[in-house]
């Protein structure tokens, strides 16, 4: 049999024998960014549609966790940098060709809005809250007057944040597994689904719970559809893409992916939510917790498996 044997003299730390430049920070951040994008998307959407009263948790309560998770995510990103003291260089340029650049700028828009959103709704948590300075009251009145505009900005920037978490990977033509444009919509759908799950966990209104169970069910359906399309695309592409797909079809990531992400993170919660919508009484926490679990495992698997997949020459 004809064989090929490649011996390389290179042994750079974190590069060889297998790329491992990104550790837990990036997938954790992508999960938190997607989650925040999901929650803020629904808050903005129902404000624009004028349904604040119908979905109080989504619009007023759930966004309170977004500044926290965004800051934790940003700290993870910061820890991942190797040249930390130069991080401000991100904000001295806008490079449209680099998803990381416009992602950094999107975060610069989304994070302050998430704080403003909390400030506007602070009386939902502390009914007797009074701002200490008058100018904050004036700002409060200004944002309340322009709430629709603020919601539109938030709606669009949260969608960009959700898509960017996937596009960040798909911009790298060197890693065949990441190099598919399906990752953008897939990560967006997954981010919205985890956002809906977080709202489900916090909501006490039966009507709101049923509405978000329905939304989550639809998003899970979209994710399944996109995952199948992703593999169809890989299997109909070049050898390196087929090799990338085989990491999940018999390779080392088969069990974690199909068991934890697809079965426990998508199929089981979809089944539980369907039963709940049909009127069965089930412990309400299980489905959303599984969705959140599936979301985080999914990002870890894509981040790690992507670094394994490569071009061979």
């Amino acid at each position: 049999m004809k064989e090929e044997l490649i011996v390389s003299g290179r042994m750079n730390h974190l590069i060889d024998p297998q790329l491992h430049i990104w550790h837990w920070h990036i997938p954790l951040y992508l999960f938190l960014g997607g989650l925040a994008a999901g929650i803020l998307f629904f808050a903005a959407l129902y404000t624009i549609l004028g349904k604040e009263k119908e979905y109080p948790t989504a619009v007023k309560i759930a966004p309170f966790i977004t500044p926290i998770i965004l800051v934790v995510g940003l700290m993870a990103l910061f820890l991942d940098l190797n040249h930390k003291l130069y991080f401000w260089r991100l904000y001295t340029t806008i490079r449209l060709q680099s998803p990381m650049s416009w992602g950094a700028w999107t975060l610069m828009v989304v994070t302050p809005i998430s704080v403003i959103w909390c400030a506007l709704n602070i009386k939902e948590i502390f009914p007797n809250w009074k701002w200490k300075y008058e100018f904050i009251d004036e700002l409060d009145a200004f944002f309340r007057k322009n709430l629709k505009t603020l919601s539109w900005v938030l709606l669009i920037s949260s969608l960009i944040l959700g898509v960017y978490t996937g596009i960040l990977f798909s911009a790298f033509n060197a890693r065949p597994l990441w190099n598919t444009s399906i990752l953008g919509p897939l990560f967006l759908a997954s981010g919205l689904s985890t956002g809906a799950a977080a709202i489900l966990l916090m909501s006490k209104s039966h009507h709101e719970r049923l509405a978000f169970a329905r939304i989550d069910l639809m998003l899970i359906g979209i994710e399944m559809f996109l995952i199948i399309h992703m593999f169809m695309g890989f299997l109909a592409s070049t050898q390196v893409h087929i090799d990338a797909a085989s990491l999940f079809l018999g390779g080392p990531y088969t069990t974690p992916f199909w068991l934890f992400v697809v079965t426990l993170g998508l199929a089981v919660p979809a089944l539980l939510e369907t039963l709940e919508l049909k009127g069965f009484k089930l412990p309400a926490m299980i489905a959303p917790i599984l969705v959140l679990f599936g979301g985080i495992v999914f990002r870890f698997i894509i981040a790690y498996a992507g670094q394994v997949s490569r071009w061979l020459y």
Binding site: I21, L81, N82, H83, Y86, M100, F172, W311
Partner: peptide
């Protein structure tokens, strides 16, 4: 800033 994006993007490592 040492983000590693270029390292991940290089098909030649």
């Amino acid at each position: 800033i040492g983000c590693g994006a270029c390292i991940a993007s290089c098909p030649y490592d």
